[in-house]
């Protein structure tokens, strides 16, 4: 996969992401039209596929992929199209046309994220009450899995010790919010 695209997704380079989005949008709409997917659903699927691309970029999975950005994006898109067709089928009588459509893209199966539990939803509620810098700090530490050293470099902290104390301050604030919810 094109390395600079992976990096752009990982670091959320909005300019490049916008270009990528614009580049393949119409072609993807044409692709999903072959499967009789409604336009609004196609756009949802396209964005969902983009999100999955980004998650795979962040997890490092994309770097191991040999196919091009487009092939992978459309592969994920195809998977989501199949899911959508199943959803259509469950709602009304629908003769599946899956195998009638010839396409150049191999389906790429992605995991659908689990729904958050009640506790996790509550945690999310408090997480959102943190300041932006704390949210960013915890996202980088736990979701992105960056080391303190890497966060210091990326976010411009003086050194990793500052990151460490900042992070523990954020966690403490979050725990306090949970223990003593503001009224």
């Amino acid at each position: 996969m094109e390395n600079h695209f992976v990096e752009a997704l990982k670091h959320n380079d909005e300019q490049i992401i916008k270009e990528l989005y614009d580049n393949y949008r119409n072609s993807f709409l044409g692709f999903s039209k072959k499967y009789n997917i409604a336009k609004a659903d196609s756009l949802d699927i396209y964005q969902e596929a983009f999100l999955a691309m980004r998650k795979h970029a962040i997890s490092g999975k994309l770097l191991e992929v040999n196919s091009s950005f487009k092939t992978y994006l459309f592969g994920i898109g195809k998977h989501l199209i199949y899911k959508k067709l199943k959803e259509y089928a469950s709602k009304r009588s629908y003769e599946q046309v899956l195998h009638k459509v010839e396409s150049d893209y191999e389906e790429i199966v992605i995991e659908s994220p689990d729904k958050l539990t009640k506790e996790q939803e509550l945690l999310r509620h408090y997480f959102k009450q943190l300041g932006n810098s704390c949210q960013q700090m915890l996202t980088l530490s736990f979701y992105r899995g960056l080391t303190n050293e890497e966060i210091a470099t990326l976010e411009g902290y003086e050194n990793e010790a500052v990151v460490r104390s900042q992070k523990s301050r954020c966690l403490k604030t979050l725990k306090n919010l949970i223990k003593n919810p503001p009224k």
């Binding site: 916008k18 999100l51 958050l116 959102k128 949210q135 915890l138 736990f142 966690l171």
Partner: peptide, 21 residues
């Protein structure tokens, strides 16, 4: 759990960005 929640939030932000595009 924070990892999961921050991922969910991060995804939501990215979705917003795509929707704006």
């Amino acid at each position: 759990n924070i990892k999961l929640v921050s991922e969910t939030e991060d995804d939501a932000q990215f979705k917003k960005q795509l929707a704006a595009q």
